[in-house]
Write a protein that binds this DNA or RNA. Sequence first.
DNA 1: TCAGATATGTTAAAATTTTAACAAATTGGA
DNA 2: TCCAATTTGTTAAAATTTTAACATATCTGA
Lengths: 217, 217
Amino acid sequence: MERFSNISMAVVRRLPKYHRYLGDLLHNDIRRVSSQELSRITGFTASQIRQDLNCFGGFGQQGYGYNVDELHREIGNILGLDKTYKTIIIGAGNVGRAIANYTFFEESGFKLYGMFDNNPKKIGDNIKDLTVLPIDEVESFIKSNDIEIGILCTPKEGTQKIAETLVNCGIKGIWNFAPVDLKLSGNVIIENVHLSESLFTISYLLKEQEETLKKKR
Amino acid sequence: MERFSNISMAVVRRLPKYHRYLGDLLHNDIRRVSSQELSRITGFTASQIRQDLNCFGGFGQQGYGYNVDELHREIGNILGLDKTYKTIIIGAGNVGRAIANYTFFEESGFKLYGMFDNNPKKIGDNIKDLTVLPIDEVESFIKSNDIEIGILCTPKEGTQKIAETLVNCGIKGIWNFAPVDLKLSGNVIIENVHLSESLFTISYLLKEQEETLKKKR
DNA sequence: TCAGATATGTTAAAATTTTAACAAATTGGA
DNA sequence: TCCAATTTGTTAAAATTTTAACATATCTGA
């Protein structure tokens, strides 16, 4: 991924974990934490944690550590969790429905405004408090509702085309569950959840482990 | 992740992509491909592709390139796609149901043998051709059916405990959709799908991009 | 108030990952 | 048959990421 920022993706992908663990600490009324303790909890090295946090500023205090509440809030801000985002789901199949009903989604500031499908059997279905709309209406819907994020839960085939449509409508981010790598121009953010690749990785690791265990014997 | 193999996770995570793109080529009756062409398609550098493939053996031929069919098959074998795996799903909520109905899952050799939940309202539900069983029965079920992979679609709270149970029953791999990092001893493979972290990453990137665009103006 | 303990921010080193370079092998057309 | 073009496998360099080291600041208990 080509980006302008000097923060590496490796760091970015650790931020949500920090946020989650700090939330846990907060939940347990722990007010103060050192990088060493965070290391014990998260499994990252203390050095890495300090270095990561320092990308965004000195949140800690020498001799004391980090204030849990403050750090949790700061990372939340860095992650943009203070904002809310308007979203739609394309594809009202199993995955689309699961995301629609995923409570964490709205808890994190992502508000679902609409669901779309091209299958006449699904159009008109009620999912949560929404009615599935025909895909033809997606362009006008995005424009009139200022939708920022599109969630693609479509089968492989139509996905590239619909993604292009979304980008043309000015969508800013795409959460892609379809097993394709989208080729899109412009400044759109793409975040893939490639379940098939995740599965294949398990398959590989299981096979690898079996072979290593075999050799050890 | 600590592993015995000298193949890095970075390489492993690219293998499913190679496999997918080679499948596409095969589907289009393309018999031969160079690392340069693969680079164009996949977005990885030709150098990286050659280096990755060479971790597993010399599949290509100088002056010719790679035979698509052969390479596709070889990578499939490396990924262990020739095998089948017996799986169960824990948690018959939205995510659990989506996975159960995810056709790609069974196409890839993962056979779903059972679904479990602790909610009396869900126990007895029919999902696909399976009936949701009470979680108390999971131990005996795993042992008597030689289940190899457990798919955790449970809420945050109970997940660590149920994972420990699975490991004690001899499960080999866990596909974890719960927003927790499992702490497990032994040789069990853990593959996380942390949707919340994926969401937060989008949120971060959107905010970052907005700020960069603002500066440019 | 003082001194040892603690723990950050930061710089430097080590490790890993990616990219580049190129020799050697093969292809394919004249 | 021969030669230029192609393309791999492999080695070396560059870039990135992680880990270690340590000076400096703050805390805490006596």
